[in-house]
């Protein structure tokens, strides 16, 4: 086989990670029915065929439950990461272009970064009445500040770029300046930030749900599975928490790898490596 160059390898890894994540998401969505199915003839089975991850105290298939939970987590993660990245982009760019807005937004950013993350997610989630909406609002409204600050700094620097100042002198309308000169330069930061926000969002969703401030307990979310399984850990049913927990870590690592490969492809300082 022909040897791949660095860039092709990075692209391949990126596509592979994306494919695995997509497969998990789809599989989970298709298995939702099986995950809810109770069967009292197969209570508390240890991992074996055909139940790879075992079954729980209501005879539900843990493999299906784990996949469904991951799928839900990924979907929530995707939604919240996108919402918060877009908030970050809009606020960051607006702040950099307007001095008064900048004062307000910078203050907001400092405020949000000053409060512990998990506390903020819990408070917002509670305010929105928990459940799906609560989690999405909580996670997406608390994850924008660091990316917003990064983008704001970037825009402030770009504003001083001679090519932008010259375009302004040539009479290029403001709208075109932003679209043509600002946004393309922000794209690498934005995309990398967006992808790296996924694991964050997923972990936070799982933790608020685990703590009982997130998704309701009838949904097969990873957080719900973990918090229920905690009660059975002492009775020797280790598989109930171990496999879902490992799977969650695996998904987070996959997203981190995805972000890292994306950064390698987009980062100008290593673009020819």
């Amino acid at each position: 086989m022909r040897r791949l160059n660095q860039r092709q390898r990075a692209l391949l890894l990126l596509l592979l990670a994306a494919a695995v994540l997509l497969a998990i998401t789809l599989a989970g969505a298709l298995l939702t029915g099986r995950a809810m199915e109770t069967d009292f003839s197969r209570l508390n089975l240890a991992p074996d065929l055909p139940y790879l991850f075992g079954t729980d105290w209501m005879g539900r298939d843990m493999f299906a439950r784990t996949l469904t939970g991951l799928s839900l987590s990924i979907r929530i993660g995707a939604l919240t990461a996108c919402v918060s990245a877009v908030i970050a982009l809009v606020l960051g760019v607006a702040a950099a272009l307007n001095r008064k807005l900048d004062a307000v937004f910078s203050w907001c950013i400092d405020l949000f970064l000053g409060i512990p993350h998990i506390l903020l997610v819990m408070l917002i989630s509670l305010a929105f009445g928990r459940g799906f909406l609560g989690v999405v609002a909580g996670v997406s409204l608390s994850h924008w500040p660091s990316l917003a600050r990064l983008l704001r700094g970037e825009v402030l620097q770009l504003r001083q770029a001679p090519y932008l100042r010259l375009a302004r002198k040539l009479g290029v309308p403001r709208r075109d300046l932003i679209r043509r000169h600002l946004l393309p330069h922000l794209l690498p930061q934005f995309l990398t930030g967006l992808i790296l926000q996924f694991p964050h969002a997923i972990l936070h969703e799982a933790s608020v749900t685990f703590l009982g401030f997130g998704l309701s307990s009838e949904q097969p979310a990873i957080g719900v599975i973990l918090s229920e399984s905690m009660r059975y850990l002492t009775t020797g049913r280790w598989w109930l928490a171990l496999f879902p927990g490992l799977a969650l870590v695996g998904v987070v690592l996959l997203f981190a790898a995805l972000g890292e490969q994306a950064r390698r492809l987009l980062d100008p300082s290593s673009i020819h490596q």
Binding site: N5, R7, Q8, L11, I271, H272
Partner: peptide, 11 residues
Amino acid sequence: SFSQYHRGTRK
């Protein structure tokens, strides 16, 4: 000489 990528992944 320089090696460069152009049009995505071609070196």
